[in-house]
Design a protein around this nucleic acid. Structure first.
Lengths: 245, 245
DNA sequence: CCGCTCTGCGTACAGTGTTCGCATCGAAGG
DNA sequence: CCTTCGATGCGAACACTGTACGCAGAGCGG
């Protein structure tokens, strides 16, 4: 690729031989770093991101990044908050609260699957220090659930989004292993099916119904969508019982 | 500390100076390695576990471990499966299915909080290759839900345990950051409360009710227990609606 | 023109997972 | 009893990682 600004090993160091600062290449900045980090995380996975590789992608040295970001962990927190902006929560005055919550839940799932490292970082960070976008997200959810009439909106939110996070986390992990295999999801499933059947043979209650096998190998995406929707409906039904009527 | 078998730097290497193999110290074995790894993970957290430190704990060199374990990832999978044996699932013929499922869910949560790295590894591994204990756990759950009368037990299980995993994951992350602070959970909360209040000032719907502040600073464990139980009841209510009566 | 702050980066350090080849062992076979 | 052999432990080494430090230059206010 193109060389960094001054890395050419010129035998005679000279002012004249020095490269000009390439201003067309945008300057190193916190935002640019975070954006590129997200791109790398999405493309190559969480354990492929290193400060050196990230620096190289930005035509910069690894240690230059530390002028804009205190530590790699901080960079991850910034990436999480940046991505949190993608989650869409309908306004609080939506006529149908169930539809609105469903929309928010599906939006969360979509972003979590688009950035499969999201739930991992959220699990590690401990959510002690939350960024502005994440706070906005929480605030909108609180408004939505309050408007829906819940006496203790935080309880309801925790319930729904524990389910959503648990499901998204499992799906993201699954999609990551599928991606690592280099196969289509359907092919991957088809290849693993014999082993799964053999394993299930010793555990009578784990038999997989034929209909599910069929759908898993033809349209696995639709199957996952449906599973997620099913569980979400269950949770919302349980919550609806607690709504004062 | 005590020296490893042959590490004494004897200037004159001699057969006679060689230490005897200490047979009272149990030999290096796969099980011993996994056990010690779990102890380390529990005590010092997931990022504190390195092959070298683990070897040192076992009075062995780091590379000796590779005779019994192919890779660090495999070691983690073994640790996960070992820990999965601690989860208790009531027998399928339990009279009250809700009580039985509640017991299983609470048992999962307890082990996930006893080993706060569990959910992290589960999220990374992708659950492609499951160990025997984890299979047993799944099998028992399937039996329980089938006996309860669910037409599609796997759907119901996925719903409940997505919630349980999401909640446990968040709690484990929280407890990890609390532990890192070196304070009591109550002290930690009390110290962070002003900042939280200030942050909530800009987000009107995020206000924390006084009763909750009070309980969080006096008995945070009970508060977490109750939150978990609340969400679980919600999910079970939603599932009960789908049970043929 | 001086000085000062800001930014980039080369070097270096401590630590990581893992490979390789050598030393040593207990047991099996002649 | 001596020899051979497979299993086991391990020191050295390799390719990485995150990050601290100090120097070099750029741009700017005085």
């Amino acid at each position: 690729m193109s060389s960094s600004r001054t890395k050419d090993k010129n035998p005679i160091p000279s002012v004249w031989a020095r490269e000009q600062r390439r201003t067309d290449q945008p300057a190193l900045s916190r935002d640019a770093i975070v954006r590129e980090a997200i791109a790398m995380l999405d493309a190559e996975g969480i354990e492929a991101l290193s400060m050196r590789k990230l620096g190289a992608r930005l035509n910069a040295g690894a240690t230059s990044l530390y002028r804009h970001v205190a530590t790699k962990d901080e960079l991850m927190e910034l990436a999480v908050d940046e991505v949190a902006a993608e989650i869409h929560v309908p306004p609080a005055d939506s006529p149908d609260w169930r539809a609105a919550v469903t929309e928010a839940a599906e939006s969360f799932r979509t972003t979590a699957l688009r950035h499969p490292w999201l739930t991992l970082v959220l699990g590690q960070a401990g959510l002690a220090y939350l960024g502005p976008n994440y706070m906005d997200f929480s605030e909108r959810l609180a408004a939505l659930f309050t408007a829906a009439g819940f006496a203790e909106p935080s309880r309801a939110i925790e319930t729904v989004f524990s389910y959503v996070m648990g499901m998204s986390n499992a799906e993201a992990a699954w999609l990551t292993t599928v991606a690592r295999s280099g196969e289509t999801e359907a092919d991957f499933i088809a290849r693993l099916m014999p082993a799964a059947q053999r394993a299930a043979a010793d555990h009578s209650h784990l038999a997989i119904p034929h209909s599910e096998v069929e759908e898993a190998t033809t349209d696995p995406v639709a199957l996952r969508d449906m599973k997620f929707a099913y569980g979400l409906e269950v949770v919302l039904d349980g919550l609806a019982l607690r709504l004062p009527k």
